[in-house]
Amino acid sequence: MKPAPFRYADPRSLDEALDVLSAEAGAKVLAGGQSLLPLLAMRLAAPSTLVDLNRVPGLDAVEATGDGVRVGALVRHAHLLRDTAAARVQPLLARATANVAHPAIRNRGTTVGSIAHADPSGEMTSVLALTDGSVTVATPGGRETVGWRDLFVGPLETSLSGPSVVVDAFFPALAERSGTAFAEISRRKGDYAVCGAGVVVTLDGDRRVAAVRASYISVGLVPEVHDLTEAVAGKPVDGADWAAAGALARTLVDPDGDIHASADYRRLLVGVLTERTLAEAAAEALERTAA
């Protein structure tokens, strides 16, 4: 469990980082190393050079505005978890990061790295999808914004190719009259979820359910957003049949089984977690509507 030989680059600017990445097809970005280094140790990845972003200035800020939260490439999960301004604008961020691994890993691992890693078992890929977020990608040719649908191609696979660095991820603000909730079930505390669910409930002016969206973790090959509105549309919050939404969700997902959970069990959890999180999110939506 020792990595194959690789070179190490320690760029001091984004341009310098992109230069190294352009010069070598086998070069790979290193952020917190919490996913990449285990892959190296098991020789499942053998990059020619690791391009360490950690000394590139200007990538470590969380900017919360009325539009949403922009998270720099070097922002650690632990930082985002503690950022109260970000949590006000988009409460899913803190709720989800609290479920990412253990404190030691959250102190090093980056939220953007997690998204670039495109693990369907990761919380933040799913949150990017659920909030309809995007990433900013820097290439030698300039910067572009890539929406989540275009970003996630497969498990551990993004559409990014050639020399590119994700400089930030943008999570749009929670809409008015909306509430969110996040819950997951893992075998042990802090483990990757056996199944997780993030939901957003939006009410109309009459405090009736207008829209319900959900995204699941460790369910399917890429993050997806499911519209569950039809199960509860137009219902008052306290009269909504969240179980019906859970039942609908179960029909929409297509989970796989593995050594920790059968596909059927994951489907069961999708239903249970949907029902539980929707009730919670609706209560929050109601609160935010009243306020």
Binding site: P38, M42, R188, K189, G190, D191, I259, H260
Partner: peptide, 16 residues
């Protein structure tokens, strides 16, 4: 052996 790592061989943590 499909779970030959501490990722997939689940020894209980203190929390379990």
């Amino acid at each position: 052996l499909q779970n030959a790592s501490f990722m997939d061989f689940l020894m209980p943590y203190a929390s379990e």
